[in-house]
Design a protein around this nucleic acid. Structure first.
Length: 669
RNA sequence: GCCGCCUUAGCUCAGUCGGUAGAGCGUCUCACUCGUAAUGAGAAGGUCAACGGUUCGAUUCCGUUAGGCGGCUCCA
């Protein structure tokens, strides 16, 4: 008669006594409980209760519950694949954010028809109500049972050996203390129809997979390494209800509508002409207006915060990147060099060897040269150098992605040189500055990530790392934001904070990074003269706020779904005459708006007024000013806002004031 | 870079089981002068991504290249 403590789905802990042999399923007859948590570990509902257990029901609609449903759905997928493609070998099949995948080694890649067929087969499996049954197995027995699954055998080997590949072990294949296999048992015959090496837990029956959908297939390297064979991966999604699945699909549709590449074309903001090359954008006039508004505001804010503006070339001799170390470590990410100034005589003899020039992948080496252009005094520190610096990186062809991953882009790049004593304050004010500026652009939901040292892959002495990490940590904590540790995630040259922003539909984007660098000041032998006359090495802080302007542009475009706040909107106001006769009146109003610094157009095309409204709406212009006889008579205009509401008979002065106020306050309307 | 898919008018996409192409939107012209999301009519616009091969004949089949998309890897 074990005495236990139970927490129902929405309740408080209660002490109970149950019969020996009672399973978790009996405690939670509610079908929305998919597994239980016993002492912090997730267990199947078939778990037999033991004395002193603290047992919580895990609902299908919780994060853990969804993960279990998704993991079980992945098993159903794998079973369907091996039924339809008996030669398929199993890779791994973990739950992931919003879904799951399973990797297979198959003779040929899956086609869309295969996916449709598999989905149908999965539905049949789910309907048949197979039971998931857990079985502990010895390593030797597992090797026999899985003799035909080479990848599973490899995983067993990994578990036996060193567990350095923790991430992989953690994907629910072989994690945990013991090796287990899950059998899928036919509900009617009781036969085991399929099995998979798996840590679990699983839903008790395939019937408890309420809603799923296969999304796409793609290739993936086995265990994530380019050196390994490519497996065919099928992605799917699964949810606790049909409605939740529907909501997820609607979310994906919304995300697609917001895709900056699509909006960029629809709103005539930018394009990627093939003639220029992959990953190299051109900004059209309307995109140019938005970009300039973004940059101008950033400039003013930087100026007001003690930054000094610098300009550096796009091109440099290779020597500079040897000094910085880029050529040693990152040459494959750089455009190949152009060889200049070589002279070769008519007989082929080399008169001058020439020079390698490179497009710059980063601005910091050039800023260091500005620092060291003359002797520096402690009195001029912190020295904050700022540049909209365009860099070029030779990204692999498979990774370029619109404006978010381009081959040429402009960083809003600052490098701050300060004394070790100043570092703490500098980091704190820097973070405040960064967050404040991001808020002004309309992002206001953040969390921070603190990336700390990986001892195996870093340089610099322990004390420096400890000081810088502590300083970053304190700056992060004083912001009051959620702080997620990222142990070992730092670059080799110093720790960093990155600011993650959530957009309007809840996606997170990595925005700004603030990074302490122990490496470059040494490599460039940067020095300043301290108060006691000694030469000291400054601390260097790298800081990009937008990351890149192009990328930030894309993030804002998606965040706002193209409907920019007035101050960023390419066209802020459009005048729409009821008939041709009202055009001149609106052109006069437009002149007055222009004088007030407003970007305004008047639609004098021969479309009907209704069509002009539709066009302006599609262009997501914040203000439509409509004028007909009534407005002209009253020396007024009529507003139509983006949401379709209207405000009629507004005097011209009031209209200008309203619009100018919205621009000045950077309001969304 | 790797795997798969894709590339037809400015945009979104039909279509041709091999006999040189179509729609909607957009553009232009004309008529209409209209009070809050599409007025009507007409016209222009395509070497069917490029190059090579098979074929009497290729936009269609095959190959190569470029570009795009979805992933993997990568992202200083």
């Amino acid at each position: 008669m074990p005495r236990i403590t139970v927490r129902p789905l929405d309740g408080d802990l209660e002490d109970r006594t149950v019969d020996g042999g009672t399973t978790a399923a009996e405690l939670f007859p509610d079908r929305s409980v998919v597994v239980v948590r016993v002492g912090g570990e997730l267990r199947d509902l078939s778990y037999v209760i033991a004395e002193g257990d603290v047992i919580e029901g895990v609902g299908a609609d919780s994060d853990d519950g969804r993960a279990v449903i998704r993991h079980s759905t992945a098993h159903v997928l794998a079973q369907a694949v091996q039924q339809m493609f008996p030669e398929a070998k199993l890779g791994i099949g973990p739950p992931i954010r919003d879904g799951f995948y399973y990797d297979f080694d198959v003779a040929r890649p899956f086609t869309p028809d295969d996916i449709a067929g598999l989905e149908k087969r999965m539905q049949d499996i789910i309907k048949s109500g197979q039971r998931f049954s857990r079985r502990v197995i010895t390593e030797d027995d597992a090797r026999v049972e899985l003799a035909l699954e080479p990848y599973k055998l490899e995983l067993i080997g990994l578990k036996g050996g060193s567990t350095s590949d923790e991430e992989l072990l953690d994907v629910m294949e072989v994690g945990g203390a013991e090796l287990t296999i899950y059998d899928n048992i036919d509900n009617k015959s009781g036969d085991t129809v399929w099995r998979d090496l798996c840590r679990g837990p699983h839903v008790p029956s395939t019937r408890m997979i309420p809603a799923f959908k296969l999304m796409r297939s793609a290739a993936a390297y086995w265990r994530g390494s380019e050196k390994n064979p490519m497996l065919q991966r099928i992605y799917g999604t699964a949810w606790e209800s049909r409605d939740a699945l529907k909501a997820h699909l609607a979310f994906l549709e919304e995300a697609e509508k917001r895709d900056h590449r699509r909006l960029g074309t629809e709103l005539d903001l930018f394009s990627f002409p093939d003639e220029i090359g992959s990953g190299l954008a051109v900004f059209h006039p309307k995109g140019g207006v938005v970009r300039r508004a973004m940059e101008d505001y950033s400039r003013i804010r930087h100026e007001n915060s003690g930054y000094r503006f610098v300009y550096t070339p796009h091109l440099t001799k290779g020597q500079l990147f040897e000094t910085s170390g880029h050529l040693q470590w990152y040459a494959e990410g750089m455009y190949p060099p152009m060889h200049l100034d070589a002279e070769i005589g008519p007989d082929g003899e080399v008169r001058r060897t020439g020079q390698q020039y490179y497009l710059k992948p980063m601005n910091c080496p050039m800023h260091n040269l500005i620092f060291s252009a003359r002797g520096r005094s402690y009195r001029e520190l912190p020295l904050r150098l700022f540049e909209f610096g365009t860099v070029y990186r030779y990204e692999k062809s498979g990774v370029v992605h619109g404006l978010t991953r381009a081959r040429g882009f402009t960083q809003d790049d600052a490098h701050i040189y300060c004394t070790p004593d100043q570092m703490q304050d500098e980091l704190k004010s820097l973070l405040e500055f960064v967050l404040g500026l991001l808020r002004d652009y309309g992002l206001d939901d953040f969390y921070l990530e603190l990336s700390t040292r990986d001892p195996a892959k870093s340089i610099g002495d322990d004390a420096d790392w400890a000081t810088a990490t502590a300083a970053l940590q304190e700056a992060a904590e004083s912001s009051g934001l959620e702080l997620v540790p990222d142990p070992g995630g730092a670059a080799f040259y110093g720790p960093k904070i990155s600011v993650q922003a959530r957009d309007a539909i809840g996606r997170t984007w990595q925005m700004s990074t603030i990074q302490v660098d122990f490496n470059l000041p040494n490599r460039f032998e940067l020095e300043y003269t301290a108060a006691d006359g000694s030469r000291q090495r400054p601390v260097m802080i790298h800081r990009a706020l937008f990351g890149s302007i192009e990328r930030f542009f894309a993030v804002l475009l998606e965040h706002y779904a193209g409907a920019f706040p007035v101050w960023l909107a390419p066209v802020q106001v459009i005048g729409i005459p009821i008939t041709d006769g009202h055009s001149d009146y609106l052109l006069d109003v437009a002149k007055r708006l222009e004088a007030a610094g407003v970007r305004v157009e008047v639609d004098t095309s021969d479309d009907r007024m209704q069509k002009k409204i539709r066009n302006a709406q599609k262009q997501k212009i914040p203000y439509m000013l409509i004028a007909g006889d009534e407005d002209v008579a009253a020396e007024a205009v009529s507003f139509r806002y983006r949401d379709g509401t209207q405000k009629n008979g507004v005097s011209i002065d009031d209209a200008i004031a309203e619009i100018a106020a919205a621009i000045a306050s950077r309001a969304q309307v």
